[in-house]
Amino acid sequence: MSDTIGARRIGYRRRATPLHAARAPIAAAYAAAIACAALLTEHPFLLSSLLVAVVAAGAAADVGRELLRAIRVVALPMVAFTVIVNLLVSRNGLTVFARLGDWGVLGQENLTVEAAVYGAVFGLRLLVVTLAFLLMTCAVNPDDLLRAARRISRRSALTATLTTRLLPVLLQDARRLSEAQRCRPEGAPKGARRTVAVLRATVVGALDRSLDVAAVLEMRGYGRTRRAPALRAQWSRHDIAFALAAGSILCLAVFAAASSQAPFQAYPLVNIGLSPTIFILSGLLAAAALLPFCSRRGVEP
């Protein structure tokens, strides 16, 4: 119990870092650019460079611990799962390193180096994308982001805001209900019965709560909603730096994907192109992602 309370939750919290100081849409664009770059390229060197960049950016944004926890709890198992599944289902590789015999419906199971490499590269890409969105979750103010979205679709954005706000509240409710059940003299119902009972009570409570929230929204003028005013704030040094970084990362990734400077082929035999351009591109990607963190002026909330 104390561990659950003590663990640092994954979510936005204002911190004194350049990424937090940048306006929300730009900080989100920066994280999205890293994710897009990972989706555009499949060269392991470039992906590794992006992985280093996103972890270092997380550390520079003071959310490194959250990112590492997410890697440990979610991302690494997910990557391992991807590699194993690809190893078992892929029939494309030529370099067999293990013969597992006849596996019934799966047929003759031969594990190949190519399938392992492809699975690992795919997992690496998945890891970078996951971490980029985690960085966004931890370092981008959801309210500011949704405020920007409200200019496009107000009701949908407000619904999204309420959902993000109420999810942790419901989790808290479920924890409280579960605790109250433990106070019963006969103890809480066990296993699935307990889960179903608590879940049902949480949902009923949520419906009650939603009525109150709806009443509050009404009283705050939701019924006479007007178009949200544009926030005309001057661009800070951090806004400019992260906007440039996002643009540079995207340009470099598009260049790597469109040109033949970063060749990578997993099947039928692994072929990883290693040229000076690859190293330069990797260095540039990491530099573009990390340079905006060099200036720490005006980062205090």
Binding site: P142, D143, T161, L162, R165, R220, G221, Y222, R224, T225
Partner: peptide, 17 residues
């Protein structure tokens, strides 16, 4: 209803336009 205190205070004003 909002995720940060500032956004909470801004909501009614935004609704008033």
């Amino acid at each position: 209803v909002m995720a940060t205190v500032r956004a909470e205070l801004e909501l009614p004003l935004e609704n008033l336009g």
